[in-house]
């Protein structure tokens, strides 16, 4: 039973990791938490649903098109909305929640009923290990997550733009004096955070019926995962996401299905008290 649970956990864990990355990117850049992240993820699913079901876009173009559109949306929203919320973290939290309410209810007005998502990744099952089923969709989730993480890693480590983003995350003021365009870097950060969350939305679509409130719980759990791994660390968030997915799957089986959702939040509270920077996060000293 355990290998099967691990595969399920790995699949959901990758989703938490991708949505969590959206939190991490914004947190690193701005020290703000964008609580509309779960709704962005959900909007990605519905955008995918529209493109795949009504326009017949196949899997791979869909995985390029949806994040591209979301990237533009994120960068645009940063310019129009988020930029005016940097007043303080309280204002940002409430403003972002307001945006989340808008997105969720707008989608609900368009798609009031839960809908099946087209099986864009096929519905086959692999049996790499006897007795253990590996759904095709899960394979896609894991492979795409790996590719994305690799791409992000390459971008942040080897490209000029990636280094600029890291410089802004470390110290926006100094980066600005060194010639990095800070507003552009922040726009890029929001664009990226929207893009990764929307890919997660497309990946998870075929597994369930999709509904406008699907982002609420996933968003909060992805957030817990980010805190677990370290909300200012990209690697930490990915490990935190996968860890949380696996913990949830095994705990639901061995401890209690009813209280499956409690674990993520208990971990969240515990981590914040014991180790607020997460498993892999860096401690940022507070300057007076």
């Amino acid at each position: 039973m355990l290998p099967q649970l691990l595969i399920g956990g790995l699949g959901t864990g990758c989703i938490y990791a991708l949505v969590g990355l959206g939190f991490t990117l914004v947190y690193r850049g701005m020290a703000m938490v964008n609580f509309a992240q779960g709704q962005v993820f959900m909007a990605g699913t519905f955008l995918g649903l529209y493109l795949a079901r009504d326009l017949g876009v196949p899997a791979i173009p869909l995985l390029i098109l949806v994040p591209a559109i979301s990237f533009v949306a994120g960068a645009l929203l940063e310019k129009l909305v988020f930029r005016r919320l940097y007043h303080s973290h309280e204002v940002f939290v409430v403003g972002a929640i307001g945006l989340g309410v808008m997105i969720e209810n707008f989608v609900r007005a368009l798609f009031p009923e839960p809908l099946p998502f087209p099986k864009i990744f096929g519905s086959g099952v692999y049996r790499f290990i006897p007795g253990v089923l590996f759904q095709k969709t899960y394979l896609w989730i894991v492979v795409i997550t790996l590719i994305l993480v690799l791409m992000l890693h390459i971008m942040f480590t080897y490209t000029r733009r990636g280094r600029a983003l890291r410089a802004v995350a470390a110290d926006a003021e100094i980066a600005g004096t060194m010639g990095v365009s800070v507003p552009r870097a922040i726009g890029l950060t929001f664009g990226l955070s929207f893009a990764v969350a929307s890919i997660a939305g497309v990946l998870i679509g075929p597994l369930y019926f999709v509904s406008p409130d699907m982002g609420d719980m996933v968003g909060l759990k992805a957030f817990s995962a980010a805190v677990l791994g370290g909300i200012n660390s990209i690697v930490g968030t990915i490990i935190g996401g996968i860890l949380l997915g696996v913990i949830e799957a095994t705990a639901a089986f061995y401890i209690s299905t009813d209280y499956k959702d409690v674990f993520a939040f208990a971990i969240l509270m515990l981590m914040l008290v014991v180790r607020p920077h997460g498993l892999l996060g860096r401690v940022v000293p507070v300057k007076v």
Partner: peptide, 19 residues
Amino acid sequence: QFRLVVYGFILLLTMMVAP
């Protein structure tokens, strides 16, 4: 049905212009 969209918008706008 756009009632809550407007509600969200009021919140967002207030935070943007009157933090």
